[in-house]
């Protein structure tokens, strides 16, 4: 029988893969993909607990808010990436060191 633990394991795998993407990727857009993976794993947790643990819809409401935040974050982050590309001519994060002393 599929229980709460199955969803939590899937979400843990997604979360650690997202952390790996954020930590090791050079390309800024790829780091954003890692952040989306992390947000999705949090969403799976919220919805799974809302079904199996508290038996109410509050977790799904929270998941909707997470999706809203993710959309806004993607828009703003891509704006930053585009203007960074215009200035540095690259989206590699190790070349965005203008503020480095």
């Amino acid at each position: 029988m599929i229980g709460l633990n199955h969803y939590l394991f899937v979400s843990a795998a997604l979360f650690s893969l997202g952390v790996m993407g954020v930590l090791t990727r050079k390309n800024a857009v790829n780091v954003l993909m890692g952040i989306e993976l992390i947000l999705n794993s949090a969403n799976i947790n919220l919805v799974a607990f809302s079904r199996y643990s508290v038996a109410s819809l509050d977790g799904q409401i929270f998941a909707v808010f997470v999706i809203i935040i993710a959309a806004a974050e993607a828009a703003v982050a891509l704006a930053i990436v585009l203007s960074m590309y215009r200035i540095v001519k690259s989206v590699n994060l190790d070349q965005a060191d203008t503020l480095k002393g």
Binding site: Y7, V10, N43, I44, V47, A48, S50, R51, Q60, V64
Partner: peptide, 10 residues
């Protein structure tokens, strides 16, 4: 997975 969890709207 959301469908499995009964979250059709999500």
């Amino acid at each position: 997975l959301y469908v499995f969890l009964g979250a059709d709207f999500l």
